[in-house]
Structure formats: C-alpha cells, structure tokens
Nucleic acid binder design. Structure first.
Lengths: 216, 216
DNA sequence: GCGTAGCGCAGGAATTTTTCCTGCTCTTTT
DNA sequence: AAAAGAGCAGGAAAAATTCCTGCGCTACGC
C-alpha cells in the first residue's frame, strides 16, 4: 500500500456530464488513479486517446455519433494495446459480446456497487481483464452451450421464422407465406423463444434490431 | 449570497448508485442545497418521501418496480404540494408530457450542462416550474401545430402499458405489476394496437425503439 | 344542473395462439 | 446400420386475444 509514483491515467467517456462527475468523484478516492481526460462522444474519445494515451479508458456504450462500440474499434485499431473498460447500463450479454469482440478488456454494469468500478480499473491497469461477475457467469453458460451469436443455435428454418416474427408478422401470416401449417410455425416460434431465452415477441424484435437483422 | 438558514432539502431517486453519487457531488457545491435522502426505486422513494418530506425530489423515470411516473403519481396523491423534478435521459417530448401530467413541476435531461440541475432545483424550491429549454421549445412547437407523436393519442394508462409491452413483458406480467386484471391489460393491449395501427407486439417494440422510448 | 364524452376497469364468450408432447420422414454423420 | 437432428404437423390443455357490454368517475359544455 505504498503511494505509487505512476498513477493509473484514466479517460472517462460518457455522454452525460453528471455521470462523468460521478465517476470522477468515485475514482478520486483512490490515490493510484487519476482522471486525465473526459469525452462525451466517440469521436472526441478517439482523438483524445491518440493525444494523451491514457492507461485506461472507461467507456459507456450509448454515445451520440459513432457509438461506443465503434469508438472502441477505432481506438484498438490505432493502438492494439489500448485497455478499455466498458461501463454500461446494459445487462444483456449481447452487449458484452459485442464490446469484447470490439476489443474491450472489461465490462461492468452501472447497477453494481460503485466500488466495483475501482477494482475493475485496477485490474485492467495490471494487465488483467475484468467482467461483471453476474454477466461473466451468464456468458460462460452461453458459450458452454456452443452459442456464438445468439442466433447460431438456430436452424435455417428457425432463423427464417425468427426474422419474420421480428418484422411483426403473425403466426398465421408466416404460415401462409411459407406454406406451412400454422401449427408448425407456432411450434417453431416456441422453440425459437426457448433457444434465444426470450419470453416474448417484443424481445425477439429487440434482439433482431440490436443485430441489425431487421430495421428499426 | 448570504448563507441561508434553511437549505433546500433534496431527495435523489435513480437506480444507479454511481449516478446518484454524481448528483450528490454536484449539488454539494451549492450551500443552499442539501441532499437528505436517496432511493433506488419507486417504492422506496414514496416511503422515504412520506417520512422525510423533502422540499424537492430529483427523480429518474426508468426505475425498477413501479416506474418513475407511477412514483410521481403516488407521491403527488399523498402530498399535492410535493415538488418533483424529473431528471431523465429521455429527450422525447412524450416523456415530458407524461411526467408533467403525473404531477412533476420540472423536467431536465441528463445531457444538459450539470449546472442546469442546480438552477432547476432552485427554481422548483422557489415555487416555479422548470423545463429543459430545448424541450420546452419542441413541446411548444408541437402543441402549436397540434401535431404530436403517434403516442399522443394514447391515454396515460395506455402509454404506460405500451411501454411495458415494448419492453417485452407479457400481459399477465403487466397485470401483476400494475395490480390490474389481466383482462384489463389484454383489452388495453388490443386498444393500443388499434390506436397505433400496428398488428403485433413486435411492431410495438419497433415503434418504441424508433422513438427511443425503450432501449434496443 | 344535466347530458355527453372519455378514461379506467373488468367480466363473458368465442376465437386464436401458445405450449408441450408425440410421431413421422428425410438427410447427414459415425 | 444406427444415431442424430432438421423439418413438419397433429392432439390436448392452457393462455392470450378480440369484441362486446357494463359500471363508476371526472370533466366539459350548454
């Protein structure tokens, strides 16, 4: 617990100034962490990253302009060693997958204990990765079951019907269109919900939109 | 600028602890404002309001359990003089309309300057109302042109159920949450589809996403 | 003051959808 | 040849949807 000569230099990226202020206050309590920059959008984050080369980026995903994911990709593209901690309100594992795939080394949700942010920053600074415990577990389960994207578990037919459901077609609509018994489509629909672990058509729609499978 | 004997007593309501910490820090800079309570959900907010009778409630709308809107209604029902400032991420005017109708005296978005929050709190404390400048303008324009969002044809209850449907909740889910007969919710659901001229829950979800009423 | 209209709420009845189970065919893999 | 899995669909029970009706309440206009 000796004072360190080189504090962890952090850049905060979040579109809400109040929220950044919250992070700042929180991180101020740790002498080994120093907030050296803030950005309220993805472009600015990329630019500042290149200028200041912070050790850690703490980044929200929902940003105006290019989103958080794209910002991560751009930062990583220029500096493959960049260390980015996503700090998002989204609990859904799809966001975690996307963030990690984009190059982030950590993912925390805002609903966790504020102190967890500090632990995560330190973990990333020391070269480790850090996932929200809750989310890591869910992700692990998904992976064990051999699911890359949530859709890779779907068969061709299932995916076809998934798309039509997401577009707003009714079961009997789809049956007519595909020349199937409505029973068949109904059964597929149930099957799809099970595989994707969603409970309603609304969630199917959101999932599809999230993956840009259908347009908003 | 003399120090005041009776600071404005504020209660913060937001489900993210980090965000509340941000508000706290921000408001701490004003000697005439004192944060006397925090809540991370609607029920707790109502309970604490009754016990502590804060002068001002600063409230997010997206809360677990009963949403922010319902919390506002309950607080106002018990104390019609309650002064509530909504501090939300939603820019869509539909939320402002709903919040004001529920009884709030102010609406600010989180994307504004942090200092604006302080002004708003002071405005409400002195008996005035306070709307985000940007939003007030849009609201005025809409009203003048008599042209609202597709949702303005929905009643308060209908809109509430619309949001829950779009989030993926089932009819009986919603019935439990709102303490209604599932028949009532089912009937509302049909009514909503008719009013919005959509044929399925998936389209409800997409409509809601398009208007950023729910997150993708 | 009284009619009218709209909202919130919910039951009845008929219909449709969903769910869970089962069974069949066909193809692919081992 | 056996096994596994996709595609398809029916039966039966459960759940959701739709359309209709009705009631209480509040607000508005005449």
């Amino acid at each position: 617990m000796t004072s360190k000569p080189n504090p962890i230099r952090v850049m905060l990226v979040d579109d809400h100034a109040v929220v950044r202020a919250g992070y700042r206050m929180l991180l101020k309590n740790s002498v080994d962490i120093e907030v050296i920059a803030e950005a309220d959008n993805g472009e600015s984050a990329c630019k500042q990253y290149n200028q200041l080369q912070p050790d850690i980026v703490v980044m929200d995903l929902s940003l105006p302009g290019i989103g958080g994911l794209e910002a991560i990709r751009r930062i990583i593209a220029r500096d493959p060693d960049a260390r980015i901690l996503v700090f998002s309100m989204h609990e859904d594992t799809i966001f975690v997958e996307q963030a990690l795939q984009a190059g982030a080394q950590g993912y925390m949700t805002k609903s966790g204990a504020p102190e967890a942010l500090i632990d995560a920053v330190r973990a990333l600074a020391s070269g480790k990765t850090h996932l929200d415990k809750n989310i890591a577990e869910r992700l692990a389960f998904q992976k064990m079951r051999g699911k890359d994207t949530p859709f890779s578990g779907l068969s061709t037919r299932e995916f076809e019907i998934f798309c039509l459901l997401a577009e707003g077609h009714s079961t009997s609509d789809i049956a007519k269109r595909l020349s199937l018994s409505y029973k068949t489509v109904a059964n597929y629909s149930t099957q799809i919900k099970n595989k994707l672990e969603v409970g309603s058509i609304a969630e199917i729609a959101r999932l599809a939109i999230r993956h840009q499978i259908v347009n908003v």
